[in-house]
Design a protein around this nucleic acid. Structure first.
Length: 937
DNA sequence: CCTGTCACG
DNA sequence: GACGTACGTGACAGGG
């Protein structure tokens, strides 16, 4: 194998840069829509792409053969050029549906060919190509750009040439002159004038390439031409150049490629590598490309893989020869040489399963204890790094490190290049946790796959997605329990106290299981048609959420502490009053004791018992009783303060991280079956807002000095989605016209003209609108509005008369769910409904969930898409995305960038459904600014 | 560990 | 005809 990364790129070196996107699109259009036999995954473009790569590799002989090579891809999403001109590439149609899942596969293909594969967020492939070509030229080497894209022609010259792979034609200075009528250094000037309808570069109207070249050749360059435009003889042309000067200058900036990007890799790292036949054959076999694998096998002189005709096995039960779990075979790695061998294995294979062991569960505070790796099922290792010496005499163990461990810094620095290598897939169970740990040790892990997220994309609603569940379900294997190593409760130890021998078995097994799950689940994504969901709505969120969580939000501890004290005083007073009224001392915090006093001592009417036989004392019951007696009112007052104090003003202080001084929640992508996130430790998605007292807690969430908090929230997003999905013209029109949707509903239902609308009528309509989203029932509506059930039923009947499409949507959705056992969002997320055909009391429950899930889930998908695009959109602004609360995003922004950030973030949020889904209703985002969350909201 | 209660969208 | 229901979450306290 070639030695990597040492020989300096310079004279005699020849860099090949392949325009990956051009390859993909050419392959896609050149081939019929082939699909993988076993599961129907579209692979036409991948097959064509592999073919082209193979032909390219085969042709690499003779004087033009490269010493260095990379395939460069466009990073999906917007580039920095959209910041200059928001219409840039705006009339590009979205990629065809069956091409989208093939994009990541072409990256996999490139890695399988052992060719470097590069893409950088916020930049186009052309800019990376430009930067590398310039670097190669400046180092005295040659560069060949394999592309026929005219935008790249500006780079030609001084050792840089282009190669049109289709026509096998080299393009040098003369070739560029032939195309543009000017030399490479003036190409951008011609393009600036001629514009480009494909990329939506405006240019000068009425001027094409021919005229542009004429003008440039006459005046020398664009700047001179524009300065001396008065001298142009043709009146029309003269006028255009004078009037459209700004537009032309913008066009030049748009077509000018960036030669000075900061790259996180060097030319040397692109050195040509020998093909690794196992890796390539594995990939081709997975894609079930028989002909191509035979051809390439023959070329490499290896055995072609046997590709079965039958579909792949689904679960362990179907797998004929499952490799057994043998924990005694796992390797204990304690030397650099052993670790080096594992790293080499991973490079050769192109993937590796990784798991970290730490001293606890808080990824912002715990220490790394060890790392386990697995490349082949059954063959895993554990690298203990910070285990403590066990000391039989000392109950508390020892602070000394145990023997048989590598130095932590050394191991991490050895693993860093592998973990950051774009050509090697890193596989995790719950990647966010491990990635955050690694980030704290200076490693930015990418690319990643996550078996937990795969399971969620396929089986949300069917089972949970923890490793134990997945292992038992899919591998028929019960993993070693962590409790058996750590114990439980007060006597539990941390992982660094676990003896090495036990730790190796447990930790390596986790990596082994993760790898096996990945091998099993990854192909199932296609079978279940959720590859796009996984690739576009799940996996890209891992780095986004990691960054938000690690940044955290600033909380004013003193403000919380003052509130706690004030609440405590009031509570003591209320407690005394309650004891006085009851005539005895009791625990106000015990619902059982409160119930006894209410319904037995005070003999109030209307009490109900819970299923455990206790008196039930929820707020709405106490609210009703408050009309007759002071006692229930005071209990409500007490409970409110108790809630605010224990859950918020006290608990939040404990969550302030001592190192950062900020609060770092953790979001769970799999927390809700609908696609919503959940937030925990602490939950920052349920900070009070509905009462005056509660809102004061939001005042304690503050911006750092010199900054503001801004909050952007989707207005009525679920109702808008309902209007779209159910196709309700009246609702859609009202949203388009920007009308008050609840007033409009009320007007329709009760025949009240809008200008005679009363707040109460509007309030009732609002309750009905929300009821519809939840799968309305007369009981629920009646309880919410405090009206008789018959009245509620009449409202609902009336509503369905006026909006028959809503009933159709509900009926259709229920029918779909019963038939398919799942429902779907507009973006293809599946929410499984295994209970939908259950009889008995659960039936109504499942039906309402089925009605709600596509609406709530589509809204969740939309804000997920916005969040994924946000980091690149706000890059360059002094702004950080901090929090998500279902339909709201909160940012911390330097004061002078508040307006810019709102403009950019609002654009991203309002356009988040595009281009995958064209909504019939506009999405509207409201924004607030403040020194704290209360002001911003 | 489960239940009841209540905070949010 | 009765039953029990608005959809989705997480945290805390009480009590066994």
């Amino acid at each position: 194998m070639a030695e990597t990364g040492e020989a300096k790129f310079g004279k005699g070196c020849h860099l090949h840069l392949i325009d990956g996107s051009a390859f993909i699109f050419r392959a896609y259009h050149a081939l019929p829509p082939l699909t993988r036999k076993s599961d129907g995954l579209p692979i036409g473009a991948v097959a064509g792409f592999c073919n082209m790569l193979q032909r390219y590799v085969e042709g690499n002989t003779g004087p033009d053969a490269p010493t260095h090579v990379a395939v460069i891809f466009d990073y999906s999403g917007k580039s920095f050029r959209n910041d200059m001109y928001d219409q840039y590439k705006a009339n590009r149609p979205p990629a065809p549906e069956d091409l989208v899942p093939q994009f990541p596969l072409t990256r996999d293909a490139t890695r399988a060919f052992n060719i470097a594969c590069k893409e950088i967020e916020g930049f186009e492939a052309d800019d990376i190509i430009a930067t590398l070509a310039c670097q190669a030229r400046d180092a005295g080497g040659r560069c060949t750009i394999i592309s026929s894209d005219k935008d790249l022609m500006q780079l030609v010259g001084d050792g840089v040439e282009m190669l049109d792979a289709m026509k096998n034609k080299r393009i040098d200075r003369d070739g560029v002159h032939e195309k543009f009528g000017v030399g490479p250094e003036r190409v951008v000037d011609v393009q600036a004038l001629a514009g480009d309808s494909v990329d939506n570069v405006p240019g000068a109207p009425g001027i094409g390439i021919k005229t542009a070249a004429l003008l440039i050749n006459e005046f020398g360059d664009l700047e001179t031409l524009l300065d001396r435009a008065e001298e142009i003889k043709q009146p029309k042309r003269r006028q255009t150049l004078i009037e459209k000067r700004d537009q032309i200058e913008l066009s030049k900036r748009l077509v000018q490629l960036d030669c000075e990007m900061e790259l996180d890799f060097t030319l040397e790292s692109l050195e040509v590598q020998d093909p690794v036949s196992e890796k390539l054959m594995e990939f081709l076999a997975e894609m079930e490309m028989r002909t191509l694998s035979k051809r390439i096998a023959a070329q490499l002189g290896v055995e072609a893989p046997v590709i079965a005709e039958a579909p792949k096995a689904d679960t362990a039960a179907d797998a004929p020869e499952a490799i057994p779990f043998e924990v005694d075979k796992y390797q204990h790695v304690d030397s650099a040489a052993e670790l080096e061998a594992w790293i080499a294995k991973a490079h050769k294979r192109g993937w590796i399963a990784v798991d970290t062991e730490t001293t606890g569960l808080d990824d912002m505070q715990v220490d790394l204890v060890g790392i386990s790796l697995c490349v082949e099922a059954g063959d895993a290792c554990y690298i203990p790094l910070a285990h403590k010496k066990g000391d039989a005499d000392d109950l508390f163990g020892s602070d000394d490190l145990a023997d048989g461990q590598m130095n932590l810094e050394e191991a991490v620095s050895m693993l860093k290049p592998l973990l950051e290598d774009p050509a090697v897939m890193k596989i995790f169970q719950n990647a966010k946790y491990d990635c955050k740990i690694f980030k704290r040790y200076g490693v930015s892990v990418a690319p990643i796959d996550d078996t937990m997220l795969m399971s969620y994309a396929m089986n949300a609603g069917v089972h949970n997605h923890g490793m134990d569940t997945l292992s038992e379900t899919y591998l028929s294997h019960k993993p070693i329990s962590i409790k058996s190593l750590l114990g439980t409760g007060k006597s539990a130890i941390t992982f660094d106290k676990v003896p090495l021998e036990d730790a190796v078995k447990y930790a390596a097994e986790d990596a082994d299981i993760t790898l096996r799950l990945w091998q099993l689940l990854k192909p199932q994504l296609h079978q279940k048609k959720v590859t796009t969901v996984y690739e576009t709505l799940e996996r890209p969120l891992v780095p986004v959420l990691s960054e938000m969580e690690m940044h955290g939000v600033l909380v004013d501890r003193d403000a919380l502490s003052r509130m706690s004290n004030s609440f405590a005083q009031k509570m003591a007073q209320y407690e005394a009053e309650l004891h006085e009224i009851a005539g005895k001392s009791f625990n106000v915090q015990s619902p059982a004791q409160v119930g006894q006093i209410l319904f037995e001592d005070l003999e109030l009417e209307g009490g109900k018992k819970t299923k455990t036989g206790q008196w039930s004392t929820p707020a709405d019951v106490l609210e009703d009783l408050a009309a007759e007696h002071d006692f229930p009112r005071r209990v409500l007052d007490y409970r409110q303060l108790q809630k605010l104090k224990s859950t918020y003003t006290d608990a939040l202080q404990d969550h302030i991280n001592p190192d950062t001084g900020r609060v770092h929640t953790s979001y769970s992508q799999i927390g809700a079956n609908t696609g919503r996130f959940s937030s925990n430790d602490p939950n920052l998605q349920n900070i009070p807002v509905r009462t005056e007292e509660g809102r004061r807690i939001r005042e304690a969430f503050v911006a750092a000095p010199g900054n503001k908090l801004i909050a952007l929230d989707y207005s009525q997003i679920e109702l808008r989605i309902l209007a779209h999905i159910a196709g309700i013209d009246a609702l859609k029109q009202a949203f388009k016209d920007g009308h008050d949707i609840h007033a409009m509903t009320a007007s329709e239902m009760f025949d009240v003209p809008l200008d005679e609308m009363t707040p109460d009528v509007r309030r009732q309509a609002k309750a009905i609108n929300f009821g519809v989203i939840y799968g309305i029932s007369a009981f629920g509506l009646a309880r919410n509005l405090h009206i008789p059930r018959s009245d509620a039923q009449a409202f609902i009947t009336r509503y369905f008369e006026r909006f028959p499409g809503i009933r159709t949507y509900m009926d259709d959705t229920k029918a779909f769910a019963k038939e398919n056992l799942y429902v779907q969002t507009l973006f293809g997320r599946k929410i499984n409904m295994p209970q939908i055909n259950a009889k008995g009391p659960h039936a109504g429950f499942a039906a309402r969930a089925a009605i709600n899930a596509p609406i709530q889930g589509t809204a969740a998908d939309i804000i997920r898409r916005a969040m994924i695009r946000m980091p690149s959109a706000i890059k360059g602004l002094p702004a950080k995305m901090l929090l998500q609360v279902h339909d709201e995003l909160i940012f911390e922004v330097a004061e002078d960038a508040v307006d810019d950030t709102i403009a950019v973030a609002r654009d991203v949020m309002q356009g988040a459904a595009d281009p995958a889904v064209k909504l019939d209703v506009p999405l509207v985002v409201d924004a607030g600014i403040g020194d704290n969350w209360s002001e911003a909201h």
